[in-house]
Nucleic acid binder design. Structure first.
Lengths: 360, 360
DNA sequence: TTGTACGCGTTATCAG
DNA sequence: CTGATAACGCGTACAA
């Protein structure tokens, strides 16, 4: 219906040149083929006058490259997470002239395989396999023989597939640094995990955040005032954990392992008649929406959703060359930016000088 | 890299038959071509043994159908709206063997055109153009000569393009019915719009909700106790509007034009020492997340995001036949389901009987 | 019933 | 510098 598609042959005819000449001009390789400037001009004019657009389907059939990428995730609708990751991926793809197929597996491995195959059938240049939460995943076999990138996930099996993940270890160091810089030292406690290895089951973020925290603490020569693990990072569980902590000790600062846990901690502190940040400071991870809703607004280290999406596409489009080497697959860690808000109290400078002296 | 793609020719060779025979068998038209059952079996076995998958790119080049749909919206990341609409579209597409391209225009008409063109270049079977909020839009010329559907939008210009929108008029009738059924009658007031035509600028939802409300009220022979319009449907504006209303009259029920307005109304009622629903009932539209967060939970008519996405795909895939007729383009109205919660008070039966008598 | 041959629109080779 | 010509993988008239 409507307008007929204008083909390369039409352009060539309209410009009075061969199809070959038109093709080379339009792919910008005219000097390489030593095509006259005058012919080039004629072709270009004909193309723009006729409104020529290359048929990517046939080009794809011929060259094997479709300027198309598949993005399959376990969820797309439920959490704001997915939205922002996709947003970043969309932007990066557009910047590089690619379009994105989207697919949602709902956690079903069969569906996952079907989607990946359907995308391959359509000649995608590569696939981003994204997970809602950072974790290890078994790479589908159907993904292994073509370009692919794991987003928010690392492979359990041996594979060459690169990963893009948040830099959780560094984020752990960051929250500690925030507290130390504000003058906190001996009153720091953990809510959500405990050394050496008590984290929610299967939580990669848990072990990495904990690692960064303990390293930074060790470097500064400070010991934890306490730590209570959680089986899951939910508000009610964080609430209980905080109450348990308060029975044993009076912390000056809480490191909560995510914002939902921090929300629970807020409530427990309030119930205990403690003020944030006057009595107890709180820092956390994720930068959920709620982090700027609660009062006082929560200082937290943000999950870089948008950047994760962007990087996944960039890595996918560049990592192609010599893969399949025996080296372990590259893991790209994206910085988690600190959002400084109102939940951390700067200790008076006398105490801070004391701390500086101790460190020196 | 890795596995070589197996083609139809490979399957035919492996089965010892012609490519034509293989093709007919695999497209399930063997009886139509009267191909022997034995050949069919050989082909099927060869196909499954070799792991044959049809190359959709070449099929698309040959047949002009790619089993691919473009979905371009003005936003995808910010609101849960987009997520659920895309979710519905994804499901419908999968059910019918299609894959979805996603694109985001950020409200930029240039970008919109580029995305639509890029999708057409890749041979999509059609395009869904989605808007975040219901409104009239100028259909891009580049969309007009191929299958397309407008989602949450109706065309300003003459065009044959079908629309899929929420049934706002019926939703307006619904909220009135809820109130009447609960025994409310003479104390009903509007917050957010006022007859005959005072709605936020450009708000299609506003005029349609208002239309449904006034029709239903008229049918029941009841007059409004009051109505104060809003320039925009935001909480603070709803708050002011409600305060203004309360200065003039004491309503028994408020119809707020969306949940954000209702949130403002809640606060204004609380400030006035009024209880919801004991003193004043509240009904609303949208079913935002907040509708189930506020106390008491808000009775509201939900925007059918998921269903809008589904229907857009279904309409796109079916509406193809004889378009371009002079008839106005079809507008598919999706029911907005009522979410009955706790913000409406059932009036005592004495009053209700009185009302029933009046009606009869 | 089966096989042959052509075309979809490009890119790319190769001899003029 | 240009013009035939093959090839990508598939669907389908047409001939055998």
């Amino acid at each position: 219906m409507g307008t007929i598609r204008v083909t390369l042959a039409d352009v060539a005819r309209s410009a009075g040149v061969s199809q070959t000449a038109a093709s080379f001009v339009l792919s910008g390789r005219r000097k390489e083929m030593r095509i006259s400037a005058e012919v080039e001009a004629r072709v270009l004019r004909a193309a723009s006058e006729t409104g020529y657009r290359p048929n990517i389907v046939s080009r794809s059939l011929r060259t094997g490259t479709s300027h198309t990428i598949g993005f399959v995730s376990d969820t797309v609708a439920t959490t704001p997470f997915a939205g922002h990751v996709i947003w970043g991926a969309l932007d990066a793809a557009r910047d590089r002239g690619h379009l994105l197929f989207i697919g949602e597996t709902e956690g079903d491995p069969d569906l996952e395989r079907q989607l990946i195959d359907a995308m391959h059938d359509r000649g995608v240049d590569g696939i981003v396999l994204a997970s809602m939460y950072t974790r290890k995943i078994a790479v589908p076999k159907t993904l292994m023989d073509r370009p692919a990138v794991l987003l928010n996930a690392v492979p359990t099996t041996r594979s060459w597939i690169p990963s893009v993940v948040p830099d959780e270890v560094e984020a752990g160091r960051t929250v500690v640094r925030v507290l130390l810089d504000a003058g906190h030292r001996d009153g720091i406690a953990l809510i959500g995990a405990a050394p050496p290895n008590q984290v929610p089951k299967g939580s990669l973020a848990g072990v990495q955040r904990l690692q960064g925290i303990t390293e930074a603490l060790h470097d500064a020569g400070v010991n934890l005032a306490g730590a209570v693990p959680c089986v899951d990072w939910q508000p009610d569980i964080g609430y209980d954990a905080t109450r348990r902590l308060l029975k044993k000790t009076m912390p000056s600062a809480l490191i909560c392992f995510n914002d939902r846990v921090a929300l629970g901690a807020y409530q427990a502190l309030a119930d205990a008649g403690l003020d944030v940040p006057a009595d107890v400071s709180v820092v956390s991870f994720d930068d959920d929406l709620m982090a700027s809703w609660v009062r006082p607004q929560l200082t937290t280290v943000a999950l870089p959703h948008y950047e994760l999406g962007r990087e996944a596409i960039n890595v996918l489009l560049e990592e192609d060359p010599q893969r399949r080497s025996n080296r372990p697959p590259p893991i790209h860690r994206i910085p988690m930016p600190l959002r400084e808000r109102d939940s951390v109290r700067r200790l008076p400078s006398s105490q801070r000088r004391a701390r500086a002296a101790t460190v020196a």
